[in-house]
Simulated scan of single mutants.
Amino acid sequence: MGIFDKFKSQARNRGKQGSDTAEQKINEKTGGKYEDQVDTGQQRAEGTLGMDRDRDRDRPEQP
């Protein structure tokens, strides 16, 4: 794995953590009332930014 691949991986992981944290805080503030809408929005944002969880699960780790 090259140095740029490591940076890309680290940035993706930080982005997912930020996205998860934002989702959690929004659900706390709204009492979970809009949980489905927030989850859908998070998935769309991650997909647009190339952080699609389903795609990453299917992709094997690069040596």
Rank of each mutant, 00 (worst) to 15 (best):
R14F: 00
T30R: 02
T21A: 02
E61D: 06
E28D: 13
T30I: 13
T48I: 10
P63V: 03
G32R: 05
N27W: 08
S19I: 07
F7I: 14
V38L: 03
G2H: 08
Q10K: 10
Q24G: 04
D36L: 10
K8E: 15
P63R: 12
K6T: 12
D36Q: 06
G50S: 10
Q17T: 13
Q10L: 07
Q62K: 11
G31C: 04
Q42S: 13
K29Q: 10
R14I: 05
E46V: 00
E23T: 12
R53Q: 08
D36C: 02
R53P: 05
M51R: 11
M1C: 15
G18C: 03
I3G: 03
P63S: 07
A45N: 01
S19P: 09
F4H: 14
G47R: 01
D36H: 01
M1G: 15
R59E: 15
R44M: 10
Q24I: 02
Q42Y: 01
V38A: 01
A22Y: 08
K16A: 11
G18Q: 09
Q62D: 12
A11G: 02
D39W: 13
A22M: 12
K16S: 02
P60K: 09
E61G: 13
P63C: 09
F4K: 14
T48M: 02
S9K: 11
Q42T: 15
R53W: 00
G15Q: 02
E28T: 11
N27A: 08
L49C: 00
K29C: 05
R44A: 10
G31K: 06
E35V: 03
G15T: 00
D36T: 14
G47P: 00
G32K: 08
E61T: 09
Q24E: 13
D56V: 03
S19Q: 04
A22V: 11
G41R: 05
K33P: 01
Q62I: 10
E61F: 01
F7E: 11
Q37I: 13
R12G: 12
R53N: 07
T30A: 05
R14A: 02
K25I: 11
R14Q: 09
D20G: 08
K16G: 06
